[in-house]
Design a protein around this nucleic acid. Structure first.
Lengths: 232, 232
DNA sequence: GTCTTACATGTTACATGTTAGATTGATCAA
DNA sequence: TTGATCAATCTAACATGTAACATGTAAGAC
């Protein structure tokens, strides 16, 4: 039978907690490394420990939370090596996903990328750094939306939440980075628009490697500040 | 104090159930599509529903188990499209992981691959198809062992349990497939041994695409048999 | 005979109680 | 001061009870 009313869009409590917590971490409402015990989240979300536990387990797979047995759950806090792995991984995945997307739906992809560049320009004019970060995340997610293989999307999901968190916490606040980043996003959209895959790959590599350098540098500052706060 | 034993090597009950269930599914002790309700597994493993639930959730991420809300949990049963996605994904991941591994530890990789080929030859002489399948799985896992990036390994983990299951259930039983497959494994090891990455990539692509054709064909036979059994 | 509904059954989602591991700090002895 | 021991506390792991939901089937209306 044909469904008229599409679907009762019910999400389990666990899924709601997962999505809410994920968004909260990405937007910096919980700091990297912060303790988020089941009990604390129970109070914050007003539900029992079961769905909280399920949500934490799900976010563990995304690398966003670390669960230490009998000790607690914490927002991830990467070291330099983890940042490097994350960047190498996303470079590889985005390069391949973009290649697939350019084979499957090049026009849709390019249109989407250019639209997001416009959004970035607007965010920059409004000095809305949070929205710039969200647009940045959406830009890179676009490669996967059009790549046509759910597994490739799932694989990117292993990294994208962490990347987005690093973006809002570390790279997006830098004026200089946003300016460089915007130029590169624009360049990549144009390169794909004229089918210049090699050029795109080169720009993507530069873009991600520069992002890695900024993130690594800012991470040190973040940790220094966090240590100082802990010493008090 | 410096830790001498790096990690307390205790595994939680949930982890044991996860690994045990994973191995059982891969080895065909549960058929594809079979109902594995929490209650049933509770009886089989002799533990409560909590760790069972955690294990099922973990295997859901590996695509090995499908959890349908309020209806039950089932061993995955792919359609042709899912098999194709799985193969396209593994082709991409193995190609990239092998490239990384050849940059990081080419000698170790090639030695491992050749050792596994020897094991395959032994398994074939003994007509031990299960061990051949395990060696096959280990062969492809070797690319990731030496690739040096944990995220790349995690990404492959999204597919490898399903691939291994299809192997034991569908492709490994075919004498013809094992013979072709063995030649290709040997060829890839030799190509990598002499640094012929392009040749390797071509052989890998052939290998995986042939595997996909066999798996797709045998999947039809499996489903026909399963339907006949269900009709009874 | 067909359609609808009520009910029995199977299953997970969620809540909550209990257990045990890890950590911290106090206490006390050397 | 130093070091060891122990108790208190915090936490996730695990067990179990309850409720809501999906489904198949059979009874009943027409």
């Amino acid at each position: 039978m044909r469904r008229i009313l599409p679907i009762p869009p019910i999400k389990s409590v666990a899924d709601q907690v997962r999505d809410g917590l994920r968004a909260a971490i990405i937007d910096g409402q919980f700091a990297m490394g912060e303790n988020i015990s089941e009990e604390r989240l129970t109070a914050l979300f007003g539900v029992s420990r079961s769905p909280i536990r399920d949500a934490l387990n799900a976010l563990k797979f995304a690398g966003l939370v670390e669960i230490v047995p009998k000790r607690g759950s914490f927002v991830f806090l990467p070291g330099d090596a983890e940042v490097a792995d994350l960047c190498a991984f996303r470079l590889m995945m985005e390069r391949e996903a973009a290649t697939l997307a350019m084979a499957a739906a090049p026009d849709l992809l390019v249109a989407r990328l250019k639209a997001i560049c416009a959004r970035m320009a607007r965010a920059e004019e409004d000095s809305d750094h949070a929205d710039y970060a969200h647009a940045d995340t959406a830009y890179h997610a676009a490669f996967f939306e059009f790549c046509g293989n759910p597994l490739v999307c799932d694989a990117y999901a292993l990294a994208d939440a962490r990347i987005a968190t690093l973006r809002t916490a570390l790279t997006a606040p830098s004026d200089r980075h946003r300016a460089d980043s915007f130029r590169e996003h624009l360049a990549m959209a144009e390169q794909l628009g004229r089918g210049d895959l090699d050029g795109f790959r080169a720009t993507l590599s530069e873009h991600i490697n520069r992002t890695r350098r900024i993130a690594t540098r800012e991470l040190q500052r973040f940790k220094t500040k966090a240590d100082a706060a802990a010493a008090r």
